[in-house]
């Protein structure tokens, strides 16, 4: 367990992640302003203006407060999407690896089909068909994220199911569901934690990209990092560099934290690296 928090990279990564989650939970407490409060007299104030550390946007809303509140949306979408893909991917990967045969063939070809489409194009096409809304965005991201989980689980299960303890469980008459749940699942959990952590980063970026493109279906009054970037892009040409800069720093920082911690997790949980 100590391996999980050892070394400077792990500490930095974990600190960033903790700050991200705490910010999301306590954004009303730590934000200096209401993120939706418009102040037309302070439109496009540069960073360091009175009362606005990171400046304001076109409508005079405080950028810092919007970034702090924006963490909520990123956290909400990323965790729910990753949870959905985790459940879906683990179930399908487990069945695929354990049952084998044509079931395995069909599922893995399905994975191939999905992987041969640019992820963002796939997501955008599905959301366009279903209609843009927060629920549809979460569902789409969650469902399309199954492949990586399924592949990892399937790979592990393929090698695990040949092992003696699984044959022993069979011999003792354990039903298949029991073997999958009690014997196989705990043995793939380590790999799953790593994948789930790194997938959080992907989902945060994809959500921001969707909001940036105006396709995430998040209501315009909800502060979102991607939406802030889209706003910032419009005022970039009028000298308002800070509007697009700081939300991007926030996204990069959180993703960096996840990557740092994910790397440590991968090393700690990979027995070969010990």
């Amino acid at each position: 367990m100590r391996r999980l928090v050892r070394g400077p990279t792990a500490v930095v990564g974990l600190a960033i992640l903790a700050a991200f989650v705490l910010t999301a939970v306590f954004s009303p407490v730590v934000s200096p302003y209401d993120p939706t409060l418009q102040n037309l007299e302070a439109r496009l104030s540069p960073p360091g203006s009175e009362g606005h550390v990171l400046g304001t946007d076109r409508l005079g809303r405080d950028i810092l407060s919007r970034i702090l509140y924006g963490s909520r949306l990123s956290l909400l979408i990323a965790t729910s999407a990753v949870l959905i893909s985790l459940v879906l991917g683990v179930t399908l990967g487990m069945v695929s690896g354990y049952v084998g045969g044509w079931v395995d063939d069909v599922l893995m070809r399905l994975a191939d089909v999905q992987l041969s489409m640019p992820f963002i194009l796939l997501v955008v096409a599905i959301i366009a068909a279903l209609g843009a809304s927060l629920t549809n965005t979460i569902l789409t991201l969650g469902i399309t994220g199954w492949v990586i989980f399924a592949r990892v689980v399937r790979g592990e299960v393929l090698s695990l199911k040949e092992r003696d303890f699984i044959s022993a469980a069979h011999a003792l008459g354990s039903p298949h569901w029991r073997i999958m749940l009690l014997h196989l699942l705990p043995n793939v959990a380590g790999a799953l934690i790593v994948v789930a952590t790194l997938q959080m980063a992907t989902m945060i970026i994809v959500e921001a990209a969707l909001s940036f493109l105006g396709l995430s279906g998040v209501p315009p009054e909800v502060p979102s990092w991607g939406q802030m970037l889209a706003d910032g892009r419009e005022v970039l040409f009028f000298g308002g560099w800070w509007v697009a800069t700081f939300p991007g720093v926030a996204i990069s920082l959180v993703v960096l934290g996840i990557n740092l911690y994910g790397d440590t997790l991968a090393e700690a949980l990979d027995p070969r690296s010990r």
């Binding site: 980063a201 970026i205 921001a208 990209a209 940036f212 970037l229 910032g232 892009r233 970039l236 697009a244 939300p247 991007g248 996204i251 990069s252 920082l253 993703v255 960096l256 990557n259 740092l260 790397d263």
Partner: peptide, 13 residues
């Protein structure tokens, strides 16, 4: 590691 953390749309901007 930084290069892997910066989203393409922000880097572009």
């Amino acid at each position: 590691l930084l290069g892997q953390s910066i989203p393409v749309f922000w880097l572009g901007l």
